[in-house]
Design a protein around this nucleic acid. Sequence first.
DNA 1: CTTGACACCTAGCAATACTAGGTATAAACT
DNA 2: AGTTTATACCTAGTATTGCTAGGTGTCAAG
Lengths: 105, 105
Amino acid sequence: MNNETLKGHLDFLLLSILANGAAHGYAVIESLRQRSGGHFDLPEGTIYPALHRLEEQGLLKSRWDETAPRRRKVYSLTAKGQQSLSKRQAEWLAFSKAINATAGI
Amino acid sequence: MNNETLKGHLDFLLLSILANGAAHGYAVIESLRQRSGGHFDLPEGTIYPALHRLEEQGLLKSRWDETAPRRRKVYSLTAKGQQSLSKRQAEWLAFSKAINATAGI
DNA sequence: CTTGACACCTAGCAATACTAGGTATAAACT
DNA sequence: AGTTTATACCTAGTATTGCTAGGTGTCAAG
C-alpha cells in the first residue's frame, strides 16, 4: 500500500505487462490495476518516469500513435527488454522463495 | 543481489528472524544467510541501522549481553513487534500473490 | 459549460539499502 | 611474537526509486 515494498519490482511488472502486447502509459496503469486484482493502483507520477527509465535503458521502445482520438505514446518491448524480463522473472522467483524460506512460510 | 528488490521487505525478514528467538546483530546476519540459502548475504551497514530503526519504532527491544566473550547487543521482539510481524506477513503474501498474478506466474 | 475521464509530463520529497569508513576483542595462523 | 581472520559493534554520506503535487491539453457526458 503506502510502504516501499514495490521498490525494485516495478520494472519487472511493467515489462510483464508489455510482454502481453504494446500499450500506452495510461493503459499500463489500467492493466496493472486489473491484473493485480486492484492491489497495484499506481499514480501516473510513478508509471511515466519508470517507462522513460526503461526506454532510456533500451528495454522499451516507443512511438506516438497519432491515429487515436488523443495522442498516445505506445510502448513495446525490445529484444533486450525481453531478455531482461526473463532474467527478472527468475530473480523474482528466487527472491520470493528466499523470503518465504527466511520467514518460515 | 545488487538491485533494490529488498527495499521495504527487510524489516519483515528481521522480525521473522527474531520471532524465532532473541539474537544479536551479527547472529541475525548469519541467520539471514543460512535461512535464505545464501540469498540474503547482507552487510552490517544494512542490518545495524535497520535494527536501530525497528527499536526506535518500538518493534524491538535490546539489552547488552556482557557475559559473552565479546559485547553483544541482543534484540528481541516486543508485543508491538509481534503484531507488526503478523501484519507484514499477510502483506507479503498479498504482495507476492499480486506480483504473480500481474506477471502471469 | 462545467465536470470528469483520458493522456501526457516533471521538479522535488522521503525512505532505505548500501558503501566505506571506523573501533575493539578473541582466536588462529605463521 | 606478530599478523591475519572472524567476531561484534557503529555511523556519515550516497544512490536509487516510488510518490506527491503540481502542470498542460483533449474529448465525452451531464
